[in-house]
């Protein structure tokens, strides 16, 4: 049942191997070393080296341009007694999960619907994907226009126009509605990625399967649920991973839309790290927050990765 491309690849591999059979094979660690060298070099330079720097300065107190002083684990101790930092944890959870669930479920669902009619929906896919190319800051400004207080906000204007004027409010002025508004705005531009990746994954399902399902009288939603969804998890998985981590470190959109407010109600850990490091320039403190976040993600991620690697082999 192999399709054309892999078949061709196999014949070429076979032909090549047939040509020089007695050739000695490179050992796996050697091959791994050869293929990984560029990755290790670039990754080491731009991630590992700065990471060690970060760990190092997380033990120092640095205030702005002032002289740094060694403080041991003080930054970490302070972090866990800082009500602002502790407050960001809950907000981060809601924001990150909210954006990921909303964007991936919409994107994935749309991708599966589009797979029924790839040609007719091409323009629509492009329209939705286009939002992915808009920078966070500009998206923030546009969403401010939508959520503005009074009738000059698009959302309020629309509510008034359809007779729901009582619902109109200053959306960014209360903690709960500001967080919801932020999740909506961030999800808006995040839908493009799950749409793109899930669509690619759904496309790999052979048309014959869909045709057979239709012949059996399956309704489109049943096809989505029983056939497309289980067969397109690869795309959604990557999208969940990338959107989750992007939401975790979101800064610009929060800065523009709510500035973490009102009264810190929309401040996430990512925003906190950025504010401490860049605005306050408490580099040591910001570094400690980064390391804590890194360890937290590590703890969450290790079981998932362990399970995945076990499943693969």
């Amino acid at each position: 049942m192999n399709s054309g491309i892999s078949g061709a690849a196999m014949t070429s591999a076979g032909a090549m191997a047939a040509g020089r059979k007695p050739r000695r094979q490179v050992s796996q660690p050697m091959a791994a070393f050869a293929l990984l060298t560029p990755v290790v070099l670039l990754f080491g330079l731009s991630v590992i080296y700065p990471l060690f720097e970060t760990i190092r300065i997380s033990f120092w107190q640095i205030r702005g341009l002032g002289k740094p002083s060694y403080v041991g684990i003080d930054n970490y101790v302070r972090l866990f007694t800082d009500p602002t930092f502790l407050g960001t944890l809950w907000t981060t959870l809601i924001f990150t999960l909210g954006v990921t669930i909303l964007s991936v479920s919409i994107g994935w669902f749309l991708a599966m619907l589009c797979a029924f009619a790839p040609k007719q929906t091409a323009v629509f896919r492009l329209m939705i994907f286009a939002t992915f190319g808009i920078s966070e800051a500009v998206a923030g400004y546009i969403w401010i226009g939508i959520f503005r207080p009074g009738e000059s906000g698009l959302l309020n204007g629309m509510l008034i126009a359809v007779g729901l004027g009582d619902w109109s409010q200053a959306w960014l002025g209360s903690g709960t509605s500001a967080l919801v508004a932020l999740i909506v705005a961030a999800s808006w531009s995040a839908v493009g990625l799950p749409l793109l990746l899930s669509f690619a994954a759904v496309q790999t399902i052979p048309r014959t399967v869909l045709e057979a399902a239709q012949m059996d009288g399956a309704k489109p939603l049943a096809v989505v649920w029983y056939i497309m969804m289980p067969l397109s998890t690869a795309g959604a998985r990557v999208a969940i991973f990338i959107n989750l981590l992007s939401a975790l470190r979101a800064f610009d959109i929060i800065f523009v839309l709510t500035n973490g407010g009102p009264a810190r109600a929309t401040e996430t850990v990512g925003f906190f790290m950025y504010r401490e490091s860049m605005t306050q320039f408490n580099l040591g403190y910001g570094a400690a927050a980064t390391i804590v976040l890194l360890v937290a993600v590590l703890i969450v991620a290790i079981p998932a990765i362990a399970q995945r690697t076990k499943g693969a082999k």
């Binding site: 731009s46 700065p50 490091s277 910001g286 976040l293």
Partner: peptide
């Protein structure tokens, strides 16, 4: 994979 968490200003 975890490096994705690193905020850019750290780098």
């Amino acid at each position: 994979i975890n490096a994705f968490v690193l905020p850019q200003q750290v780098v």
